[in-house]
């Protein structure tokens, strides 16, 4: 519970006052303020300047992008149109969307009941199953790639994104794990009350637990969406052979090959691929931060 409230505490200005005798010396306080904020500013720049250079290069002319100049001499927004012209980005965008949205939907369908059973039902073997889920979560994706690839090849589903999407409808260990932790934060008394009112497990889950853990659901959905959106290994393995099924990440990786010296176009494509994720973050910043802190402190 504590962690959930912590996340909102991260809002500006709510940092708890600490340190000695702030009132004693206003001047020392001011110096401190300047010192802390200038270091923070330097750190912030360090993180954001690379992105700025990328964006600036995306607007340069072909020729200038090959020079050491940092600022565009003339602006070429047409580079972005060129990117869309040379590569079927909309198709890749569609594939990425299909992968991410279906996987997220499948994850919710399969993880919610499983997390409920692991968090709120008592049955023999629960601890064991939970440990297996955690173990599954920790297996590096490359470990199982050989037997799974063989499996999907026999089902004639390689060359498509289905081998990546379908498993989400059964199992996403990380989401089950995280969702279970979220479900555990709801006090037992609420569930007992629901039961007294005659709710079965399904109704308790849908009417009580889900509404109370909406932020958690939002967080795991975002994680799942982001993970699949950013995934490179999976699409490379299963869809690499079939350009009709490429996702944005996969297409971006081969984009540079086709446009060797045109750093401006490559960077424009990079911006195009980054933008949706950044927009998503801006729209759902709170859920992100809450989810992240929750993994860290509870996980």
């Amino acid at each position: 519970m504590a962690t959930l409230t912590t996340a909102t505490d991260l809002a500006p200005g709510s940092t708890p006052r600490r340190g000695p005798a702030r009132r004693r010396s206003n001047r020392r306080g001011l110096m401190r303020w300047i010192a802390v904020h200038s270091i923070a500013l330097a750190i912030g720049l360090m993180f954001v300047l690379p992105l700025v250079f990328v964006a600036l290069t995306a607007f340069m002319s072909d020729r200038q992008a090959l020079t050491a100049d940092l600022w565009p001499r003339s602006w070429h927004p047409a580079n972005f149109a060129e990117v869309f012209r040379t590569a079927p980005l909309l198709k890749y965008l569609g594939n990425s969307m299909m992968y991410s949205l279906l996987a997220t939907a499948g994850m919710l369908l399969s993880s919610v009941p499983a997390a409920y059973a692991l968090a709120r039902m008592r049955w023999r073997g629960r601890q064991t199953v939970f440990l297996v889920v955690i173990a599954a979560m920790m297996i590096p994706p490359q470990v199982l790639s050989v037997p799974l690839y063989i499996l999907w090849a026999r089902l004639h589903l390689t060359g498509t994104l289905w081998p990546l999407i379908l498993p989400y409808f059964l199992l996403d260990a990380f989401s089950i794990f995280l969702l279970r932790q979220f479900f555990l934060t709801v006090p037992q008394s609420y569930l007992d009350a629901a039961r007294v009112d005659g709710c079965g497990d399904l109704r308790t889950l849908l009417r009580v637990l889900l509404p109370m853990t909406r932020p958690g659901i939002a967080a795991i959905s975002l994680f799942c969406f982001m993970y699949t959106w950013n995934d490179y290994f999976g699409p490379l393995l299963y869809a690499g052979e079939n350009p009709d099924e490429w996702t944005l990440s996969l297409a971006l990786a081969s984009f540079r090959g086709a446009h060797q010296v045109q750093w401006n176009l490559t960077m424009a494509a990079t911006v195009v691929v980054m933008l949706p994720v950044i927009l998503l973050f801006v729209l759902a910043q709170k859920s992100f931060v809450r989810g992240i802190t929750f993994t860290g402190v509870k996980g």
Binding site: A153, R154, H156, L157, T158, G159, G240, E241, N242, P243
Partner: peptide
């Protein structure tokens, strides 16, 4: 076009 040996090999294994 643009299908190298790796992609052909993958497609053969996948049955497509």
């Amino acid at each position: 076009g643009s299908q190298d040996d790796d992609k052909v090999a993958q497609a053969i294994r996948g049955g497509n």
